[in-house]
């Protein structure tokens, strides 16, 4: 027999979202014990039914991947967790209303920095995300955020840096000195959503100039 009388079994129920991978996490409350089991349900905001998340029923770990279940960008969602301790006491807690468009953070881009004699090329690779379009193809961040752009900086020395930026994926910093260390940082920005990834950093040295040897 389960009694709903112990709210301290469970706390901090929330979504963490990064590049649209949506993970539900929670913590054991002050009354929680290692044997407490947790069951996860989720629902679409505006719908009546709560749906049980297969694979996250009566688990002891404190996270559950709800990426597939919360993948429609035009919907908002709730999740709730019921904790039951060995003594039969239980607690149920719900998340805030969740929208992956609003909440997701952007991971650093995946970049290849290619040194040459007097330039450095930077190639940004597309990052597939776990969201599929109507026709089934896997979306990229650029397809979701129409004002997404890349900002690239090359620190030339301690005083200034070179700036490049735009929507394309290939860039090249010219006019560099051969056989010299440079520090490149590349970020993803989505201005209308005030989203900014942390930077991908590459330290790279231009090649030596062998033309006169």
């Amino acid at each position: 027999h389960i009694t709903e009388d112990s709210p301290k079994l469970l706390q901090h129920v929330k979504f963490h979202s990064s590049n649209f991978e949506n993970i539900l996490t929670w913590e054991s409350g002050p009354d929680g014990t290692p044997d407490t089991v947790y069951s996860v349900e989720y629902k679409t905001y505006g719908e009546r039914e709560w749906l049980a998340k297969m694979g996250c029923q009566r688990i002891t770990r404190k996270s559950c991947n709800l990426t597939m279940e919360t993948g429609n960008l035009t919907e908002l969602y709730y999740a709730r967790i019921t904790a039951i301790d060995p003594g039969g006491r239980s607690a149920t807690k719900m998340t805030d209303r969740f929208s992956s468009l609003q909440h997701t953070t952007i991971k650093p881009p995946d970049v290849t920095c290619v040194p040459r004699v007097r330039s450095i090329q930077m190639i940004i690779h597309p990052i597939p995300i776990p969201i599929h379009a109507g026709d089934g193809h896997q979306l990229t961040l650029e397809e979701i955020f129409h004002d997404l752009f890349y900002r690239l900086e090359l620190r030339v020395n301690h005083t200034y840096q070179m700036h490049l930026g735009g929507k394309q994926r290939e860039y090249e910093f010219f006019g560099l000195t051969p056989d010299t260390e440079y520090l490149g940082t590349i970020m993803i920005l989505v201005p209308t959503w005030s989203k900014e990834s942390s930077p991908y950093v590459c330290g790279v040295k231009t090649l030596s100039d062998r033309t006169w040897t």
């Binding site: 900002r151 030339v156 005083t159 200034y160 840096q161 070179m162 700036h163 930026g165 010219f174 006019g175």
Partner: peptide
């Protein structure tokens, strides 16, 4: 996009 830091314009 923002002031306060030196930016290279041209070689």
């Amino acid at each position: 996009r923002s002031g306060g830091s030196p930016v290279l314009l041209e070689t």
